[in-house]
Nucleic acid binder design. Structure first.
Length: 904
RNA sequence: GGGCAGUUAGCUCAGUUGGUAGAGCGCUUGGAUCACACCCAAGAGGUCACAGGUUCGAGUCCUGUACUGCCCACCA
């Protein structure tokens, strides 16, 4: 074996090995199921570190559960990501100096499918590189034929139930993507802009005017009223009076509405029903005219008169100038407010009146709220349920139609008469035909010229069905019955509203069950400075490059060991280095074992165990228990720390160092315990670092297999954990999960070992401070002060002597005795290392005095406490006993120290 | 404006039902010893944001304050 672990070539070979053995596939069986559906990555591009954060915990859980013996199914797939993918392909077309409009819908869609093929395949390859143990036979795409059928089915069901409606409303409009967006797809960014105060003169009294304030002055071209609060004294008597809208010279009325805030601006607000949600409501209420002044691309339209064709922002500039020139601009001031931007292209969105399809959300939200309230669906960490509930309780209807080409075309057909144009406010002559199948004629008028709605559905309208659609829903398949609901959903906090909440609603609505029991929310990957990872900042590393440099195992372990509970992680080279170092340590520890002696795989029970053997077995079983518990509750970094500590500190630093002589001398007990420990450790580590554990498993397996070949070893008995089969299975991936044997857990032994370690460290510390070579054997004298320790230490003298290189240990020696030679005192333990000729009596005296002062100070505190009536009457007995012991101990120490000082 | 987190070692974070603060990295010192320098040994470093309260005892529970981050929101 090489001195350093070299993951190159190992990982690909191992992954192939797993695939060829069919370990990933799952099917309905008598076993208990465990299922996870992957949050399908968008086919917009290749994977980034955010995906690694997303997939790694899932693979850990899946591997963990598979080893626990559950029928484990991880469904992989990708998402068509309508708007995002369409944008990506459009960008590509732009580079080719063409556009989707030049290509036409059909040709364009061909291009997107090509794109999807390319990136979808790449994503799958990347997931494999990362080690993901998905059931690849179940690979799904949100635009698969069967999946599309499910989407249609859902649309029709909701429509029939009256939960889908079509109507003219103000929606979030992206003038670049040329589509409506849902509220969730708008990112509000605090922006400093201007607040403009404009004078609207009265028709009858040209000298008088009302001042309105606005941040979007260009919308005044579409004003059809000015509104004030009915209780506003300033405007009493002015209601219903007529104003002349500047520039357009249109006559508009002053209306009264409660919605107007008296305290904002002048208390009077211009009303533009076609370009503001509030104004829209007022427009309906007061029967105002709706004047749309914008084209879909954000330019002014014919209703803007001379400004037609200008971009809205350019128009804004000109309007301001003109108003100023005409003396109608009362004032302008800087104003900071939230402005919506498209979450895909970052263009400033416009509130825009258009005909769209909506889903009524309140009826869907109610059961979904209940599911989380009652604990049918649980969030980890729990506090995310509050965020979820807060949003769900204030949910608003969902605009699901998108004016895009890439996506599920809406399963609605119109009679030709009403399909072409969609004039605002007009009603279709024939009602739309909402159908799973393509209809042949209009059921009302019999017309056979039907035109399908050109729009597609919001991409999330398909992904909210993911947990059951991947199992064949709406068909009641075996898979659906067996694997659904899934066990846990893994997601980033950024898509709780987009996806998690909607899946819960869809699951309950369409299957009657919540789609998963647990939701594990992980944080977001950031760079070492805490910034979000993004292409433009250049701080978003390519996972494949990192895997190439550090190995997939290193990335996985590094991230999972360092990720705070539910918090964001700052990624840096150190993160991956720590993972790499850990793997290398594992490699080398195995190398020590495999090089020293082939594993014997023999029974341990009959062999005589030394103290350290019992200790490491106790530690092992404690670790198995705690580690398993941590994984069950999604505490990945906690789990990683537990196993890290057990392996590196307990096993490598102490146990292996202690047993080295026995290892080289072929001690039978060691030779049987070691395979047991390594087998369990490799199995525990496998979910985190699957590749190297498999590679090592195979190496441990070699001698065993060799013996089987020669017939000197019994055949493998599958699936048992019984000796002599520590390495019973052909792959660690299908090996049984280690079980904690509570009979081997011994707290006293673990405590005793801690004491031993403390003593050994103290001696080493003294060596260090005094520059004493390790080769030079020392005498250790333990003072009588440390009476309590003596019994603990006695049985382990040999161990301590060997680890600390001591020639002898003398116990119960009074502090005063080594006054001519004691040179260093370890205060906590009262150890003395006698050495001739180095003592400085003055320094020694000072040291003792300081220590005495400290002890007396503590003694006073304890005495005070013990004489406190309240403490005596209320503190638990165990605590009082502890204090009494401490008092005794401190008293003894102070007496000894005083005596030592006198003798000095 | 509302909601949710957070404030503990130089940095990133743990801290289980209240019982005298831990890890990794970094730093300091020493070390080519026959698993590993991607290593080993040892060490230094903390008024647990602040102020009150409950308690025999508070990093931990309660109230308030300050600051940081995130999310939601139709004051134009």
């Amino acid at each position: 074996m090489e001195t350093a672990y070299n993951p190159k070539n190992v990982e690909d070979r191992i992954y192939k090995f797993w695939e060829e053995h069919g370990y990933f596939s799952a099917s309905a069986s008598a076993k208990k199921p465990f299922s996870i559906v992957i949050p399908p990555p968008n086919v917009t591009g290749i994977l980034h570190m955010g995906h690694v954060m997303d997939e790694t915990p899932q693979d850990i859980l899946v591997r963990f559960k598979r080893m626990q013996g559950l029928e484990t199914c991880w469904v992989p797939g990708t998402d068509h990501a309508g708007i995002a993918t369409q944008n990506a392909v459009e960008k590509q077309l732009k580079k080719e100096k063409t556009s989707r409009h030049a290509l036409g819908r059909a040709k364009f869609l061909e291009r997107v499918w090509e794109w999807k093929k390319q990136y979808g395949d790449t994503i799958i390859q990347q997931l494999k590189k990362l080690g993901c143990s998905c059931d690849w036979s179940r690979l799904r795409f949100t635009m698969d034929e069967a999946y599309s059928a499910a989407v249609k089915d859902v649309f029709v069901r909701l429509y029939e139930k009256g939960l889908i409606y079509r109507g003219n409303y103000i929606v979030n409009w992206c003038p670049r993507c040329l589509t409506a967006l849902s509220d969730e797809e708008v990112e509000n960014v605090d922006t400093v802009g201007g607040l403009y105060w404009i004078r609207y003169h009265f028709k009858d009294d040209k000298d008088k005017y009302v001042v309105v304030a606005t941040t979007r002055p260009e919308t005044m071209l579409g004003d059809t009223a000015v509104a004030v609060n009915p209780s506003d004294e300033r405007y009493k008597g002015l209601i219903d009076q007529t104003l002349i809208l500047p520039i357009m010279k249109r006559e508009i009325k002053i209306i009264a509405d409660e919605i107007v805030e008296k305290d904002f601006g002048s208390g009077a607000v211009k009303v533009t029903p076609a370009h503001d949600p509030n104004d829209f409501m007022m427009g309906q209420k007061h029967n105002l005219e709706f004047i749309n002044i914008l084209s879909p691309d954000g330019k002014m339209n014919q209703n803007a008169g001379e400004y037609k064709g200008l971009d809205r922002l350019e128009c804004r500039k000109r309007i301001i100038e003109r108003l100023a020139n005409e003396g109608l601009l009362e004032k302008q001031e800087k104003y900071s407010h939230a402005v919506g931007h498209c979450y895909r292209c970052n263009t400033m969105i416009e509130p825009y009146l258009s005909l769209q399809w909506f889903v009524k959300m309140k009826p869907l939200a109610e059961p979904a709220i209940k599911a989380v309230r009652t604990g049918d669906v649980r969030f980890f960490p729990e506090h995310w349920s509050k965020t979820y509930l807060n949003w769900m309780e204030n949910i608003r209807d969902w605009c699901v139609s998108r004016q895009l080409w890439w996506g599920h075309q809406i399963p609605v057909w119109y009679c030709e008469a009403t399909a072409e144009s969609r004039p605002i406010g007009t009603k279709d002559a024939c009602p739309p035909i909402v159908s799973r199948e393509t209809p042949t004629k209009c059921p009302k008028c019999g017309n056979t010229n039907l035109i399908q709605d050109e729009d597609v559905l919001d991409t999330w309208f398909s992904s909210w069905l993911w947990p059951f659609a991947v199992f064949g829903w709406p068909k009641q398949t075996e898979d659906l019955k067996y694997f659904y609901p899934t066990n846990v959903l893994n997601s980033g906090k950024d898509i709780i509203f987009f996806w998690v909440s909607r899946m819960i609603m869809a699951g309950l609505e369409f299957t009657g069950k919540p789609p998963f029991k647990d939701v594990y929310i992980h944080g977001i990957a950031r760079d070492s400075q805490g910034r979000k990872l993004s292409k433009s900042l250049g701080n978003s590393p390519d996972p494949l490059a990192l895997i190439d440099k550090y190995s997939a195992d290193a990335i996985r372990f590094g991230i999972m060991a360092n990720i705070p509970l539910g918090g964001d992680i700052n990624l840096s080279d150190e993160t991956y280095e720590s993972g790499r170092n850990f793997c290398n340590k594992l490699w080398n520890a195995s190398r020590l074992i495999l090089g020293a002696e082939k594993p014997k795989n023999e029974r341990t029970e009959e062999l005589k165990k030394c103290f350290e053997d019992k200790w490491i077995l106790s530690r092992l079983n404690t670790t198995i228990s705690d580690y398993t518990k941590a994984l069950e509750t999604y505490e990945f970094s906690e789990a990683a720390h537990l196993i890290y500590h057990f392996f590196w500190s307990d096993l490598c630093d102490w146990y292996l160092e202690i047993i080295k002589p026995r290892l080289y001398s072929n001690d039978k007990t060691v030779a049987s315990i070691i395979p047991h420990i390594f087998s369990s450790t490799l199995r525990m580590l496998h979910p985190f670092i699957p590749f190297i554990t498999e590679e090592l498993w195979q190496k441990f397996l070699e001698p065993v297999e060799a013996k089987r070949h020669t017939g000197s070893y019994p055949e493998r008995s599958e699936g048992t954990e019984q000796y002599p089969t520590y390495f019973s299975s052909e792959s660690v991936m299908i090996a049984p999960w280690p079980k904690s044997d509570s009979a081997q857990i011994d707290e006293q032994i673990e405590k005793a070992m801690e004491t031993n370690i403390g003593i050994i460290r103290s001696v080493r510390n003294i060596r260090n401070k005094m520059n004493i070579e390790r080769k030079q054997a020392l005498d250790l004298i333990i003072s009588a002060e440390a009476t309590k320790m003596l019994d603990d230490i006695k049985p382990h003298q040999e161990l301590i002597k060997h680890q600390a290189n001591l020639s002898k240990i003398e116990m119960g020696v009074k502090l005063a005795k080594p006054k001519h030679s004691a040179t260093e005192i370890v205060s906590a333990l009262n150890l003395f290392i006698p050495l001739e000729g180095i003592i400085d009596p003055e320094a020694e005296k000072k040291r003792l005095q300081d220590r005495l002062a400290k002890i007396q100070e503590q003694l006073t505190l304890v005495n005070n406490k013990l004489s406190d009536e309240k403490f005596k009457s209320r503190a638990p007995e165990a605590i009082i006993q502890k204090e009494l012991l401490r008092q005794e101990e401190l008293t003894k120490q102070s007496v000894n120290l005083e005596e030592a000082l006198r003798e000095l």
